[in-house]
Amino acid sequence: MNWPHKDIIAVQDLTSAEIGLILDMASSFKEISRRDIKKVPTLRGKTVVLLFYEASTRTRLSFEIAAKRLSADTTALSASGSSFSKGETIMDAAYNVMAMSPDCIIIRYPYAGVPKKMAELLPCSVINAGDGYHEHPTQALLDMYSMKERFGRLEGLKVAIVGDIMHSRVARSNVYGLIKMGAQVVLVAPKTLLPPGVETWGADVMTEFDPVIPEVDAIMMLRVQKERLHERFYPDSREYSIFYGLNKRRVDMMKEGAVIMHPGPMNRGVEITYDAADSARSIILDQVENGVAIRMTLLYLSMGGSANVD
Protein backbone atom coordinates (compact mmCIF):
# COMPACT_ATOMS: atom_id res chain seq x y z
CA MET A 1 0.00 0.00 0.00
CA ASN A 2 1.33 3.40 -0.96
CA TRP A 3 0.45 6.00 1.64
CA PRO A 4 -1.87 8.40 -0.24
CA HIS A 5 -1.94 11.39 2.11
CA LYS A 6 0.38 14.37 2.26
CA ASP A 7 -1.32 15.50 5.45
CA ILE A 8 -3.06 14.21 8.56
CA ILE A 9 -5.95 16.57 9.21
CA ALA A 10 -8.93 14.53 10.34
CA VAL A 11 -9.88 10.96 11.21
CA GLN A 12 -12.94 11.64 9.04
CA ASP A 13 -10.59 11.60 6.03
CA LEU A 14 -9.01 8.20 6.81
CA THR A 15 -10.34 4.82 5.75
CA SER A 16 -10.46 1.89 8.14
CA ALA A 17 -7.66 0.24 6.14
CA GLU A 18 -5.48 3.32 6.61
CA ILE A 19 -6.21 3.45 10.33
CA GLY A 20 -5.44 -0.26 10.56
CA LEU A 21 -2.13 0.29 8.81
CA ILE A 22 -1.11 3.12 11.14
CA LEU A 23 -1.94 1.04 14.20
CA ASP A 24 0.02 -1.94 12.83
CA MET A 25 3.06 0.13 11.95
CA ALA A 26 3.13 1.90 15.31
CA SER A 27 4.30 -1.24 17.11
CA SER A 28 7.64 -1.24 15.34
CA PHE A 29 8.09 2.43 16.17
CA LYS A 30 7.18 1.78 19.79
CA GLU A 31 9.99 -0.71 19.97
CA ILE A 32 12.49 2.03 19.08
CA SER A 33 11.51 4.02 22.16
CA ARG A 34 12.30 1.05 24.35
CA ARG A 35 15.82 0.66 23.04
CA ASP A 36 18.89 1.87 24.79
CA ILE A 37 19.72 4.16 21.92
CA LYS A 38 16.39 5.62 20.98
CA LYS A 39 17.19 6.99 17.60
CA VAL A 40 16.98 5.86 13.99
CA PRO A 41 18.17 7.80 10.93
CA THR A 42 14.87 7.50 9.01
CA LEU A 43 14.07 11.21 8.75
CA ARG A 44 17.60 12.59 8.79
CA GLY A 45 17.74 15.91 6.95
CA LYS A 46 14.02 16.57 7.33
CA THR A 47 12.81 19.70 9.07
CA VAL A 48 9.74 19.60 11.27
CA VAL A 49 8.19 22.83 12.56
CA LEU A 50 5.74 22.77 15.45
CA LEU A 51 3.33 25.71 15.52
CA PHE A 52 1.40 25.66 18.76
CA TYR A 53 -1.15 28.42 19.04
CA GLU A 54 -2.77 26.87 22.05
CA ALA A 55 -1.40 25.54 25.32
CA SER A 56 -0.08 21.99 25.21
CA THR A 57 2.27 19.85 27.25
CA ARG A 58 1.82 16.25 26.18
CA THR A 59 1.06 16.66 22.51
CA ARG A 60 3.86 19.05 21.80
CA LEU A 61 6.46 17.09 23.73
CA SER A 62 5.26 13.87 22.18
CA PHE A 63 5.60 15.22 18.61
CA GLU A 64 8.98 16.69 19.34
CA ILE A 65 10.34 13.48 20.84
CA ALA A 66 8.82 11.46 18.01
CA ALA A 67 10.51 13.64 15.36
CA LYS A 68 13.85 13.58 17.17
CA ARG A 69 13.83 9.80 17.54
CA LEU A 70 13.52 9.66 13.77
CA SER A 71 16.47 12.10 13.44
CA ALA A 72 14.42 14.99 12.03
CA ASP A 73 15.35 18.52 13.04
CA THR A 74 12.60 20.20 15.02
CA THR A 75 11.76 23.76 15.87
CA ALA A 76 8.84 24.73 18.02
CA LEU A 77 7.00 28.03 18.08
CA SER A 78 4.23 28.91 20.48
CA ALA A 79 1.67 31.67 20.29
CA SER A 80 3.08 33.78 23.09
CA GLY A 81 6.59 33.95 21.63
CA SER A 82 5.53 34.53 18.02
CA SER A 83 4.22 37.31 15.81
CA PHE A 84 0.74 35.92 16.41
CA SER A 85 0.67 38.04 19.54
CA LYS A 86 1.51 41.00 17.29
CA GLY A 87 -1.54 40.37 15.12
CA GLU A 88 0.02 38.43 12.25
CA THR A 89 -2.55 36.15 10.64
CA ILE A 90 -1.99 32.44 10.75
CA MET A 91 -1.70 32.13 6.98
CA ASP A 92 0.97 34.83 6.86
CA ALA A 93 2.83 32.97 9.58
CA ALA A 94 2.44 29.75 7.60
CA TYR A 95 3.80 31.27 4.37
CA ASN A 96 6.76 32.65 6.29
CA VAL A 97 7.50 29.29 7.81
CA MET A 98 7.09 27.71 4.38
CA ALA A 99 9.70 30.07 2.96
CA MET A 100 12.20 28.32 5.23
CA SER A 101 11.44 24.98 3.54
CA PRO A 102 10.17 22.72 6.28
CA ASP A 103 9.13 19.20 5.31
CA CYS A 104 6.34 19.07 7.84
CA ILE A 105 4.33 21.55 9.88
CA ILE A 106 2.54 20.37 12.99
CA ILE A 107 -0.16 22.79 13.96
CA ARG A 108 -2.36 23.23 16.99
CA TYR A 109 -4.85 26.04 16.65
CA PRO A 110 -7.82 27.36 18.62
CA TYR A 111 -10.15 27.55 15.60
CA ALA A 112 -11.51 24.80 13.37
CA GLY A 113 -10.54 24.46 9.73
CA VAL A 114 -7.15 26.17 9.79
CA PRO A 115 -4.94 23.04 9.46
CA LYS A 116 -7.12 21.96 6.52
CA LYS A 117 -6.67 25.31 4.83
CA MET A 118 -2.92 25.18 5.47
CA ALA A 119 -2.71 21.69 4.02
CA GLU A 120 -4.47 22.88 0.87
CA LEU A 121 -2.22 25.87 0.39
CA LEU A 122 1.23 24.61 1.45
CA PRO A 123 3.38 22.07 -0.38
CA CYS A 124 4.77 20.51 2.82
CA SER A 125 3.01 17.95 5.00
CA VAL A 126 0.66 19.33 7.61
CA ILE A 127 -0.31 17.38 10.71
CA ASN A 128 -3.23 18.58 12.78
CA ALA A 129 -2.39 18.56 16.49
CA GLY A 130 -5.89 19.78 17.36
CA ASP A 131 -8.05 22.52 15.82
CA GLY A 132 -10.88 24.13 17.75
CA TYR A 133 -13.74 21.69 18.31
CA HIS A 134 -13.01 19.99 15.02
CA GLU A 135 -10.51 17.11 15.32
CA HIS A 136 -7.46 15.82 17.14
CA PRO A 137 -6.56 12.88 14.92
CA THR A 138 -3.25 11.87 16.53
CA GLN A 139 -4.90 11.64 19.95
CA ALA A 140 -7.65 9.37 18.62
CA LEU A 141 -5.11 7.16 16.86
CA LEU A 142 -3.04 6.76 20.01
CA ASP A 143 -6.22 6.03 21.97
CA MET A 144 -7.23 3.37 19.46
CA TYR A 145 -3.72 1.94 19.52
CA SER A 146 -3.80 1.72 23.32
CA MET A 147 -7.14 -0.11 23.27
CA LYS A 148 -6.01 -2.45 20.55
CA GLU A 149 -2.82 -3.16 22.44
CA ARG A 150 -4.81 -4.09 25.51
CA PHE A 151 -7.64 -6.04 23.90
CA GLY A 152 -5.99 -7.32 20.72
CA ARG A 153 -8.78 -5.85 18.61
CA LEU A 154 -11.07 -2.86 18.21
CA GLU A 155 -13.94 -4.61 16.49
CA GLY A 156 -16.74 -5.37 18.89
CA LEU A 157 -15.29 -3.31 21.74
CA LYS A 158 -17.64 -1.05 23.60
CA VAL A 159 -16.19 2.31 24.59
CA ALA A 160 -17.75 5.04 26.74
CA ILE A 161 -16.64 8.63 26.27
CA VAL A 162 -17.75 10.76 29.18
CA GLY A 163 -17.91 14.51 29.70
CA ASP A 164 -17.78 17.62 27.58
CA ILE A 165 -18.51 16.07 24.19
CA MET A 166 -19.71 19.44 22.85
CA HIS A 167 -16.32 21.13 23.00
CA SER A 168 -14.16 18.05 22.54
CA ARG A 169 -12.16 17.41 19.40
CA VAL A 170 -10.80 14.29 21.12
CA ALA A 171 -14.29 12.85 21.43
CA ARG A 172 -15.11 13.62 17.80
CA SER A 173 -11.95 12.05 16.38
CA ASN A 174 -12.39 8.99 18.60
CA VAL A 175 -16.03 8.52 17.61
CA TYR A 176 -15.22 8.71 13.89
CA GLY A 177 -12.26 6.34 14.23
CA LEU A 178 -13.70 3.79 16.63
CA ILE A 179 -16.90 3.42 14.60
CA LYS A 180 -14.89 2.97 11.40
CA MET A 181 -12.93 0.22 13.16
CA GLY A 182 -16.09 -1.62 14.21
CA ALA A 183 -16.20 -0.59 17.86
CA GLN A 184 -19.35 0.62 19.57
CA VAL A 185 -19.28 4.01 21.24
CA VAL A 186 -21.54 5.41 23.92
CA LEU A 187 -21.33 9.09 24.74
CA VAL A 188 -22.25 10.14 28.26
CA ALA A 189 -22.92 13.77 29.18
CA PRO A 190 -25.55 16.14 30.47
CA LYS A 191 -27.64 17.47 27.58
CA THR A 192 -25.92 20.85 27.81
CA LEU A 193 -22.63 19.26 26.79
CA LEU A 194 -23.97 17.19 23.89
CA PRO A 195 -23.42 18.83 20.49
CA PRO A 196 -26.28 19.46 18.05
CA GLY A 197 -26.75 16.55 15.70
CA VAL A 198 -24.84 14.11 17.95
CA GLU A 199 -27.47 11.51 17.10
CA THR A 200 -26.08 11.40 13.55
CA TRP A 201 -22.61 10.31 14.69
CA GLY A 202 -23.44 6.62 14.93
CA ALA A 203 -22.78 6.47 18.68
CA ASP A 204 -25.25 5.77 21.48
CA VAL A 205 -25.97 8.75 23.67
CA MET A 206 -26.72 8.51 27.39
CA THR A 207 -27.27 11.15 30.01
CA GLU A 208 -26.87 8.70 32.90
CA PHE A 209 -23.41 7.28 33.62
CA ASP A 210 -24.03 4.37 36.02
CA PRO A 211 -25.99 2.06 33.69
CA VAL A 212 -23.25 2.37 31.07
CA ILE A 213 -20.35 1.38 33.32
CA PRO A 214 -20.78 -2.42 33.55
CA GLU A 215 -21.39 -2.61 29.81
CA VAL A 216 -18.16 -1.15 28.46
CA ASP A 217 -14.58 -2.31 27.87
CA ALA A 218 -13.10 1.16 28.15
CA ILE A 219 -14.13 4.40 29.79
CA MET A 220 -12.55 7.51 28.35
CA MET A 221 -12.96 10.49 30.66
CA LEU A 222 -12.78 13.95 29.11
CA ARG A 223 -11.29 16.90 30.87
CA VAL A 224 -13.72 19.33 32.43
CA GLN A 225 -12.86 22.64 30.90
CA LYS A 226 -12.89 24.84 33.96
CA GLU A 227 -12.61 27.93 31.79
CA ARG A 228 -16.10 27.13 30.51
CA LEU A 229 -17.70 27.08 33.92
CA HIS A 230 -18.90 30.66 33.55
CA GLU A 231 -20.88 29.59 30.50
CA ARG A 232 -23.15 27.61 32.82
CA PHE A 233 -23.20 24.24 31.14
CA TYR A 234 -23.54 22.69 34.63
CA PRO A 235 -24.01 24.19 38.08
CA ASP A 236 -20.64 23.49 39.70
CA SER A 237 -17.81 20.97 40.03
CA ARG A 238 -19.45 19.24 42.98
CA GLU A 239 -22.61 18.32 41.13
CA TYR A 240 -20.67 17.47 37.99
CA SER A 241 -18.33 15.06 39.76
CA ILE A 242 -21.21 13.32 41.50
CA PHE A 243 -23.11 12.67 38.27
CA TYR A 244 -20.32 12.37 35.72
CA GLY A 245 -17.07 11.85 37.63
CA LEU A 246 -15.23 8.54 37.70
CA ASN A 247 -14.70 7.51 41.34
CA LYS A 248 -13.99 4.38 43.36
CA ARG A 249 -17.63 3.32 43.45
CA ARG A 250 -17.89 3.52 39.69
CA VAL A 251 -14.51 1.84 39.11
CA ASP A 252 -15.78 -1.11 41.14
CA MET A 253 -18.80 -1.39 38.82
CA MET A 254 -16.59 -1.82 35.74
CA LYS A 255 -16.44 -5.21 34.14
CA GLU A 256 -13.39 -7.42 34.42
CA GLY A 257 -10.52 -6.29 32.28
CA ALA A 258 -12.12 -2.95 31.44
CA VAL A 259 -9.76 0.02 31.29
CA ILE A 260 -9.76 3.70 32.24
CA MET A 261 -8.45 6.30 29.80
CA HIS A 262 -7.95 10.06 29.86
CA PRO A 263 -6.38 12.27 27.18
CA GLY A 264 -5.03 14.63 29.85
CA PRO A 265 -4.58 17.00 31.47
CA MET A 266 -6.65 15.59 34.34
CA ASN A 267 -8.57 17.59 36.89
CA ARG A 268 -8.20 15.19 39.77
CA GLY A 269 -11.20 15.36 42.03
CA VAL A 270 -13.49 16.69 39.32
CA GLU A 271 -13.97 14.30 36.41
CA ILE A 272 -11.69 11.64 37.89
CA THR A 273 -10.65 10.86 41.46
CA TYR A 274 -7.18 9.78 42.57
CA ASP A 275 -8.20 6.20 43.18
CA ALA A 276 -9.68 5.97 39.68
CA ALA A 277 -6.80 7.66 37.88
CA ASP A 278 -4.19 5.59 39.67
CA SER A 279 -6.10 2.29 39.76
CA ALA A 280 -4.80 -0.86 38.14
CA ARG A 281 -7.36 -0.35 35.37
CA SER A 282 -5.80 2.92 34.29
CA ILE A 283 -3.91 2.90 30.98
CA ILE A 284 -3.49 6.66 31.01
CA LEU A 285 0.31 6.53 30.95
CA ASP A 286 0.27 3.83 28.26
CA GLN A 287 -1.66 6.34 26.16
CA VAL A 288 1.15 8.83 26.61
CA GLU A 289 3.86 6.30 25.72
CA ASN A 290 1.91 5.15 22.67
CA GLY A 291 1.45 8.73 21.58
CA VAL A 292 5.13 8.92 20.69
CA ALA A 293 4.90 5.74 18.60
CA ILE A 294 1.79 6.90 16.75
CA ARG A 295 3.36 10.27 15.98
CA MET A 296 6.56 8.64 14.78
CA THR A 297 4.41 6.56 12.43
CA LEU A 298 2.55 9.57 11.11
CA LEU A 299 5.68 11.65 10.63
CA TYR A 300 7.25 8.75 8.80
CA LEU A 301 4.23 8.16 6.55
CA SER A 302 3.48 11.77 5.74
CA MET A 303 7.08 12.58 4.87
CA GLY A 304 7.17 10.05 2.10
CA GLY A 305 7.98 6.88 3.97
CA SER A 306 6.86 3.67 2.39
CA ALA A 307 4.15 1.79 4.17
CA ASN A 308 6.19 -1.38 3.75
CA VAL A 309 8.67 -0.81 6.56
CA ASP A 310 9.48 -4.45 6.98
Binding site: A112, P196, G197
Partner: peptide
Protein backbone atom coordinates in the same frame (compact mmCIF):
# COMPACT_ATOMS: atom_id res chain seq x y z
CA UNK B 1 -26.07 27.52 11.29
CA UNK B 2 -26.31 25.22 14.29
CA UNK B 3 -26.73 21.67 13.05
CA UNK B 4 -25.09 18.29 12.78
CA UNK B 5 -22.81 19.90 10.20
CA UNK B 6 -21.62 22.65 12.56
CA UNK B 7 -20.73 19.99 15.13
CA UNK B 8 -18.89 17.99 12.50
CA UNK B 9 -16.94 21.02 11.30
CA UNK B 10 -16.18 22.04 14.86
CA UNK B 11 -17.77 25.45 14.42
CA UNK B 12 -20.06 27.02 17.01
CA UNK B 13 -23.65 27.19 15.79
CA UNK B 14 -26.32 29.86 15.50
CA UNK B 15 -29.63 28.16 16.32
Amino acid sequence: NESALSSRLGLAGIP
